[in-house]
């Protein structure tokens, strides 16, 4: 479904601020795989996401979606295949537009936008059905402006908008990190439901090791622009935080730096 081949990316090359974000990274995702990515700050997780989404073009390397080379497709073309939820709850929705208008925007993702009305009766019913799956009562507030929703509600809506057109790939970029614990738990639960139901090929970055262990079928650890650890299947199910920390220490010969990752 998704293939990254030998991706390298350096920021500010040749200046004192030079930073190697990705070094010869290879990654392959099967259809329906749910991969969680952990790693300390600056490990290259976000760069990896941006390379996949088309927000960044890597210095070298190829990106294939469905066996189609997409590395030179701009973000807006690639996003026909990719659903994305950002860390910032404000980032995934248009605040001055209503809930139904936002859903209509998402609904047109993989279709050509025309001069037909974005919201019609048929779509309204459809949007209501989708909103009901969130159990937040948003189905009764179709005409409310999204700017008036709480952070948790907006993030739930973002998740719905990113997924209900069944994209080939779903990217979740620390999408629960900016929420309070109870809302984060809700979004995590919704993520589990929606990914499970639609068998979406998913890549989730998280700082929370427990979340990385609880969710998904495969776990990847990144450090200094490389994938240093990759487990899936039963092996992953048995993994504990303790194991992850020892593993990191064994591979890198140093302690995992981020307290946030352990405590978060």
């Amino acid at each position: 479904m998704l293939q990254l081949k030998d991706i390298s990316m350096t920021f500010n090359e040749g200046t004192p601020d030079e930073k190697i974000a990705l070094q010869h990274t290879n990654l392959e995702l099967e259809r329906g795989e749910f991969v969680t990515i952990i790693g300390s700050n600056g490990a290259g997780k976000s760069t990896l996401m941006n390379v996949i989404s088309g927000n960044l073009i890597p210095d070298v390397g190829d990106v294939f979606i469905n066996e189609k080379q997409v590395v030179h497709l701009p973000e807006y073309q690639r996003s026909a295949y990719i659903g994305r939820v950002f860390q910032d709850p404000m980032a995934g929705t248009a605040p001055s537009m209503t809930i139904e208008e936002n859903l209509a925007l998402a609904y047109s993702r993989n279709k050509k936008r025309t001069l037909r009305l974005g919201v019609n009766k048929k779509r309204k019913t459809l949007f209501k059905e989708y909103l009901e799956t969130l159990h937040l009562g948003l189905e009764d507030r179709l005409n409310a402006k999204v700017g008036f929703l709480s952070g948790g509600e907006r993030q739930a809506l973002s998740l719905l908008m990113a997924t209900f057109t069944n994209p080939n790939i779903l990217l979740l970029d620390e999408h629960t990190a900016a929420l309070d614990p109870s809302r984060a738990a809700l979004i995590t639960k919704l993520t589990k439901e929606v990914v499970g139901k639609s068998k979406l090929t998913t890549l989730m970055v998280t700082h929370n090791m427990q979340q990385a262990l609880d969710l998904g079928t495969r776990l990847i650890m990144m450090d200094k622009g490389q994938i240093i650890f990759d487990v899936s299947g039963e092996e992953k199910q048995k993994l504990t935080i303790e194991d992850l920390l020892t593993e990191f220490q064994r591979i890198r010969g140093q302690k995992f730096e981020s307290d946030r990752a352990v405590l978060g």
Binding site: R78, S79, A91, G92, A94, S96, S108, N110, M161
Partner: peptide
């Protein structure tokens, strides 16, 4: 309203 968001929904 939110350029980054609409780009992620495949609008030019």
């Amino acid at each position: 309203d939110n350029q980054r968001m609409i780009r992620s929904f495949s609008a030019n």
